[in-house]
C-alpha cells in the first residue's frame, strides 16, 4: 500500500475531507519552499503538491505561471526540488506529489527520476501534459519504484477514457473542476460533481478536485462530493504577495488554516 493510499484510507475512516495545498518549488526560493512544506503539513495538509517549474506551463493560469518564472529565474531544477523534498521529509510525513510537465522529466531520465524521487521521499508524480496513451513506460517504472503515477481527468474526458485512465492511475484521481487553466474562481460549477460521480462509477480510487478551488467555502463544497480538495493558485498568490515579508512562512500557514480547520477538529465535526 502506498502512503497516499494509506492517507485516503485514514480520511475515509475518520470521515474527514482531505486538504491538498500546492506550492511551486523555489518560489520565492528553495529554503522557503522547504519551510513551507513543513508549515503546510503542520497547518493541516493531508498531501502536498510540489510544482516543478517549466518554462512553458500551458495548463497554468497567470498566478502559477509567474511562480514558475520566479523559480526559473532562481535556476531551480528538478534535482533541486527533489533535494528540497528530501530535507523537508526529515521533519514531516505527509505524502508529496511532484507536479510538472513532461520535458524536464524526460531530460532528467525515467529511471533516474523514479530512483531519486523514491529516495527523496516523493510519493507520487503528476505530469500535466502526459496522458496515459503516451505514458508508457514511465508509469510502469514509477510503479516499480513504488511511486504513484497520478492522472488528471477533465469534464471533457469520455467515459471510455475514464476507464482507461483509472486503470493506469495509482494513489488518487485528480479531477479538474472545469475546462480551463489553473487559477482561482469565484464559483464552483456543477461539472466537478458530475465528473466525480462518473469517476466513482468506474473506479474505487479516491478522487481529489482541483483547478479554481480557492476559498474555505469552496473546499467544504468539494468535500461534499469528493475525497479531497486541491488549493493551488490561491496559496501561490499568497506566497507572491508576501514574498518580501520576513514572516512569509507563518502567514502562508495562517492562510492555509483559514481554508481548513485542524485535522482533529475536522475529524470531530465529521467533515
Amino acid at each position: 500500500m502506498s502512503r497516499i493510499r494509506d492517507t485516503f484510507v485514514e480520511l475515509k475512516c475518520s470521515g474527514r475531507g482531505g486538504f491538498i495545498p500546492f506550492i511551486t518549488a523555489g518560489d520565492p526560493d528553495l529554503a522557503t519552499t522547504e519551510l513551507l512544506l513543513v508549515e503546510l503539513a503542520t497547518a493541516g495538509a493531508d498531501i502536498i503538491e510540489l510544482g516543478v517549474p517549466f518554462s512553458d506551463p500551458v495548463a497554468d493560469g497567470e498566478v502559477i505561471q509567474r511562480a514558475s518564472e520566479r523559480a526559473l529565474r532562481n535556476g531551480v531544477t528538478l534535482g533541486d526540488a527533489l533535494t528540497c523534498v528530501a530535507r523537508a521529509k526529515q521533519h514531516i510525513h505527509v505524502p508529496i506529489v511532484l507536479f510538472s510537465y513532461f520535458n524536464p522529466l524526460l531530460k532528467f531520465g525515467e529511471d533516474r527520476l523514479a530512483n531519486e524521487a523514491k529516495q527523496a521521499g516523493v510519493d507520487a508524480v503528476l505530469v500535466t501534459d502526459l496522458i496515459p496513451e503516451e505514458a508508457q513506460p514511465w508509469t510502469e517504472t514509477l510503479i516499480q519504484h513504488e511511486v504513484d503515477p497520478i492522472f488528471l481527468v477533465a469534464p471533457t474526458t469520455s467515459d471510455k477514457r475514464l476507464v482507461h485512465i483509472t486503470q493506469q492511475a495509482r494513489g488518487f484521481i485528480y479531477a479538474i473542476s472545469r475546462a480551463g487553466v489553473t487559477g482561482a474562481r469565484d464559483e464552483m460549477t456543477h461539472d466537478a460533481e458530475t465528473l466525480v460521480k462518473r469517476v466513482r462509477s468506474v473506479s474505487d480510487l479516491p478522487v481529489a478536485v482541483g483547478f479554481g478551488v480557492s476559498s474555505a467555502e469552496q473546499v467544504r463544497e468539494v468535500w461534499r462530493f469528493a475525497d479531497a480538495a486541491v488549493v493551488g493558485s490561491a496559496i501561490v498568490r499568497e506566497v507572491e504577495r508576501l514574498s518580501a515579508e520576513a514572516d512569509l512562512v507563518n502567514r502562508v500557514g495562517q492562510f492555509a488554516r483559514s481554508l481548513v480547520a485542524p485535522k482533529s477538529v475536522r475529524q470531530a465535526a465529521g467533515n
Binding site: 500551458v58 501534459d129 496522458i131 481527468v153 474526458t157 479538474i176
Partner: peptide, 14 residues
C-alpha cells in the same frame, strides 16, 4: 509526434 497535452484537450483533439 503523438499527443502530449492537458487532459481537457484530448476530447476536442479526438
Amino acid at each position: 509526434g503523438g499527443r502530449y497535452v492537458p487532459e481537457t484537450l484530448v476530447a476536442p483533439l479526438e
